[in-house]
Every structure is written in C-alpha cells, then in structure tokens.
Design a protein around this nucleic acid. Structure first.
Length: 208
DNA sequence: AATGGTAACAACCGCCCTCAC
DNA sequence: CGTGAGGGCGGTTGTTACCAT
C-alpha cells in the first residue's frame, strides 16, 4: 500500500498562481508564519492549494530578497565550480548564491550552463585531438601546484570573442570529463579568448 | 502573417530523510 | 526501536514567450 497523499488532489487547484493567491499566501505567511505545518496552511489561509505547492511558491517566488533574472558571470563561474564539487546538489549550490533559489539555479543550469559546459569541453577535446596528431609530445606540464597534471594553452580557432559570447570570456569553467579522457579538467578564458586548460590525467596519461 | 521550433521558467511529482510519538 | 507525517530536494513536465522560416 502506498503512502497517503499529502492533500486531497481532487479539491486543490493546480497550475500557475494568480496575483490574488500570491497576495493571500504572502500576507498569511508574513502574519502567521507557516502556522505549524505547510500541510495545514492552505486551509487556514483559505487557499485551495496543496501545502507543498504553497511552500514551493513561498520559497521560490514570494519570500523576501529573492533575486530573479539574469545570472552574472561571477554567479555562473561559482555554479560551475560548486557543481564540480557537489554535483547536482542544487540546494547546497543555491545556498552559496545569495538571493537565488535551488529551483532557479537548477533551471539556469539545465537551460544555459549545461550547454556552455558541453561547448567548453568539446572545444578542448577538439584542440587536444589536433595537438596529438600534429605534435610529437603532449602539452608540457607547466605546473601541478593546483593538483593538475598538465596545462594546455591555445587560442580557440576560427571563433571571434563576440561570437563566443555564449561561453565565458574572462571566466573559467570546471567539470568532470564526459568522455573519460581525463580524471578532471578545468579551463580559463582570457578576454582575448586564449584558453588555458588544466587536466588531471587518467592512469598516468592523457588518453587521446 | 502563420507556423513550427526552441528557450526559459514555473510548477508538479514522487522519493528520501528527519523527527516526534 | 518502529512507524508515519511532514519537509526537503532533485528530476521532470507544462506553459509561455520569442525567434526563425
């Protein structure tokens, strides 16, 4: 037997919240708090909504100091970094971004940053494959002070900084390698689109 | 101008964790 | 200690706006 539903699904409204509902919820929470439990709140506040829906609406939209709209480049970089550390622990990531909600961060990742990351890795992989066929040795190890084994520096080919605006000029990206070529990677784009990539090698070498 | 495709974001679903009883 | 209710969270879907053809 499954768990009992948290509310009477037949008698609760679903879909977008109206301004009136928002006002009612906001006023109630600001006056009474959650009144003990979110489950009981809709009844007390006179809302025909599921308690969980009220909680989500409050946390993601109505509570004070919520920041909506464009993410800054610094925020993007921080998300990249935190995603590399925590994976898809959106609440942990959002807690490091004042005014951002886990839902916001998650949506931003799924709609923009995931693609950005893919482009970054693809650009690096293409360059590495080119280098492996035209150069006699792998990129020289410049420094491993940050825990990386190799550093490659190159200009992104055939791409002007302006057309590269979807990536992170002047910023950096980190990630887990999706092809299994490296243990880990990171990269930095200077404003003139020189890319510096860092690699942790797999089994002691870069397997290109 | 109409239509189809895509991006962005809001909201829901359902599982897992915590904690009171 | 076991159980169940409520809260938290990540994944997914639905809706709307925008853009290209």
């Amino acid at each position: 037997m499954g768990r009992a539903p948290c509310c009477d699904k037949a008698n609760v409204k679903k879909g977008p919240w109206s301004p009136d509902e928002d006002a009612t919820l906001k006023l109630y929470v600001e006056t009474h708090g959650t009144a003990g439990t979110w489950i009981a709140l809709p009844t007390k506040a006179g809302l025909k909504r599921c308690g969980k829906s009220c909680r989500l609406r409050w946390l993601n939209y109505l509570r004070p100091n919520i920041k909506h709209g464009d993410f800054t480049e610094d925020e993007d970089n921080l998300i990249f970094n935190l995603y590399n550390q925590h994976g898809s622990r959106w609440s942990s990531i959002a807690s490091q971004l004042p005014g951002r909600t886990d839902n916001d961060v998650k949506n931003h990742w799924n709609t923009k940053l995931k693609k950005k990351k893919k482009l970054l890795v693809a650009a690096g992989k293409t360059k590495l494959q080119t280098m492996s066929s035209t150069e006699t040795s792998l990129p020289q190890t410049i420094s491993n002070s940050a825990g990386f084994d190799s550093v490659a520096q190159f200009q992104i080919p055939n791409v002007s900084p302006s057309s590269f605006s979807d990536m992170v000029p002047g910023g950096r990206g980190y990630g887990r390698d999706e092809w299994g070529l490296m243990e880990d990677w990171g990269c930095y784009f200077s404003p003139d689109m020189v890319c510096t990539m860092f690699f942790k090698e797999k089994n002691g070498k870069l397997c290109l």
